[in-house]
């Protein structure tokens, strides 16, 4: 049996390799386009290629977490592509900064920097999950993981731009407070506070 536009998500979730081949054929133009838009300025062909591979591997490894049908699979793919490419971009930029070490001594980090610095995003994500309501979770993820502007977010969520801005402001405040309460002495506390 082969993958087609009807069954490829199911086959992917069952770890059938032909489904991977199918999604590469279908979505490489999209994945490459998104990655190139973000990583293009760095002018590193190898990094771009690695990022594209990583995107597809993440899709393969996390396929079971996709909830939806074949028609909105492409949006999920695009979101992952953007998330990964931004992560690669930030890490590349960080590596290029000679004085990055000095940042460690600065007392007050922004949420944004914490997200960038966190090699393992699970801790920060756990914090977001615990602290914020679903709408704020979405907004923070869009803002800091997907690097979307307030305007783009407001369009997506049907909110006004100022509502988004104030939710980001309050969300960050809550996160910082929670991080202090729960993680003092914990790994997050040590590393970020």
């Amino acid at each position: 049996m082969k993958s087609n536009d009807k069954n490829f998500v199911k086959r992917l979730q069952k770890e059938k390799e032909d489904a991977l081949e199918y999604i590469v054929n279908q979505y490489l133009p999209l994945v490459k386009g998104i990655s190139f838009k973000i990583l293009g300025p760095i002018q590193n062909e190898g990094l771009l290629e690695e990022c594209i591979n990583d995107i597809f591997l993440s899709i393969w490894n996390n396929a079971k977490k996709f909830k939806g049908d074949t028609s909105n699979f492409k949006y999920w793919v695009a979101t992952i592509a953007r998330f990964k490419a931004i992560d690669y971009y930030r890490r590349a930029i960080k590596n290029n900064e000679v004085e990055a070490d000095f940042l460690e001594f600065q007392a007050d980090f922004s949420v944004e920097e914490k997200i960038i610095q966190a090699e393992n995003k699970e801790e920060i994500l756990a914090l977001i999950n615990r602290t914020l309501d679903p709408v704020d979770q979405k907004i923070i993820v869009m803002r800091y993981f997907l690097d979307m502007g307030s305007e783009e977010i407001s369009e997506k969520l049907n909110l006004t731009k100022s509502a988004v801005d104030s939710r980001i402001f309050r969300g960050r405040k809550k996160l910082n407070k929670q991080a202090k309460n729960y993680y003092l002495g914990g790994s997050l506390g040590e590393r970020y506070l």
Binding site: L30, G33, I34, S58, N62, K65, F66, K67, G68, N72, Y75, W76, A78, T79, I80, A81, R82, F83, K121, E122, L125, A126, N129, P134, Q137, K138, V141, M142, F145, L146, K156
Partner: peptide, 15 residues
Amino acid sequence: MKDIYELFNDIEVHD
């Protein structure tokens, strides 16, 4: 807890 890939289900990037 929702992980990032699950959260992405609700955020559709139209690129």
